[in-house]
Design a protein around this nucleic acid. Structure first.
Lengths: 215, 215
DNA sequence: TGTAAATTTAGTCAAGTGTGTAAATGTTTC
DNA sequence: GAAACATTTACACACTTGACTAAATTTACA
């Protein structure tokens, strides 16, 4: 006999509840009873659907990774590759690169926990970190490396790493420290204008770094 | 009768062990038994010296904050305040501002957990976060706000916030993601040259933003 | 050295943890 | 509707957790 229609819904409820709780503090603070309570499901169902806590956590991470895997950076920028021979095309590529991350991390079509937990697990050694690192961070970095090399062929690896970090750190930071930033600023959410300004500043800063035409 | 000489040592052992374990994953993953084991002290001593887990954690945070409080940014830059009337002085101030953070976060005279746990607790709402926010982040931000306003009097608050984040995010990032950055780069530690380059890039990027003289 | 107090120790306690199970319930398919 | 099995439920298990205590030990000071 096949899977019930309710089965998918139950799994998704459990994954969502887990992600939410994990994003509020961290994974080590997530208890199966808390997950059961928030999801409205039974503790036993976690064991039935996922076998154990670790597997549940893995599925939570996979759910958060999904949208990045569906449209990886390499694919998102593919159409601009032909223009990479011109300075102007390279400049547009830099903007696309920055925009990809801001768009993915600040659009409203995904729950906030999707983004938060990824940077949570990257902070300490674990199986979950390896998962995010191998399926998101490293491919992403590789794509950016290629772009940088095309723009400046003699660029060193450590310089590329630093540039990536200088671009992405401010973006990620707005995700990781969202609560305290918004609370200290006294606003409810990042405004659209703020995010556009952030993108512009990051793009321009990188264009200057590579001596590419601005605007 | 007064405190024993061993008492301070015991407290310091417990605080250190707690900080170390917390930095490896997070505070919610720290058990009193693990602290007792790593420190070589007895579990009961935690209760005797700190009363409960929360107070122990607070003392751990306070220990990590100490060096920042001993020499706050406002004090570190005080001697340069008279030069703030000239563009050249303002440029030097920006460098001092950046250097203060890199120096504090990457010098070897403090254990790595000091820095890691501060950014851990800032990520979710808690008493510990309020402590770090009020005694470090907010005064620090205030000091930087004043500098920015001196350089560009009509600057808006949200722009100042963005600029602070663009300067500090890359620095903090190298602390928070130290393990995975070093592991992905295949090096044992950030080289001195790398940190100097990072400082230069951050300084120059900010100087350009304020149209101040570079070099 | 003796004594009063500070500290350490080993152990207890109730509450919470992840995991597992057997029975009850629900859904699908014939 | 009934058989077949997927799912849910309530509960039990051994273990870990933070908090606490009374007794043992160590220290400082007269």
């Amino acid at each position: 006999m096949h899977e019930y229609a309710t089965s998918r819904k139950t799994r998704s409820n459990l994954i969502n509840a887990t992600g939410e709780i994990a994003a509020e503090t961290d994974f080590s603070n997530v208890s199966m009873r808390a997950v059961a309570k928030r999801s409205g499901e039974n503790i036993g169902s976690i064991h039935y659907h996922f076998g154990n806590k670790d597997t549940l956590f893995q599925e939570v991470i996979k759910a958060a990774l999904q949208s990045w895997i569906d449209e990886p950076l390499s694919e998102y920028i593919a159409s601009l590759q032909p223009e990479m021979d011109t300075k102007r095309g390279q400049a547009r590529m830099i903007r696309l690169l920055v925009h990809y991350h801001i768009k993915n991390l600040f659009s409203d079509n995904k729950p906030v926990w999707h983004h938060k937990i990824m940077y949570h697990v990257l902070q300490y050694s674990s199986k979950l970190r390896d998962l995010v690192n191998e399926s998101l961070i490293q491919p992403n970095d590789e794509t950016i490396f290629k772009i940088f090399k095309k723009i400046k062929s003699e660029i060193k690896k450590s310089e590329m790493e630093m540039l990536i970090r200088m671009i992405l750190a401010p973006i990620y930071f707005h995700v990781i420290f969202r609560d305290i930033f918004l609370s200290n600023s006294g606003v409810k959410d990042y405004s659209k204008k703020y995010l556009i300004d952030l993108e512009d500043k990051l793009v321009n800063q990188t264009l200057r770094e590579f001596k590419l035409p601005i605007g």
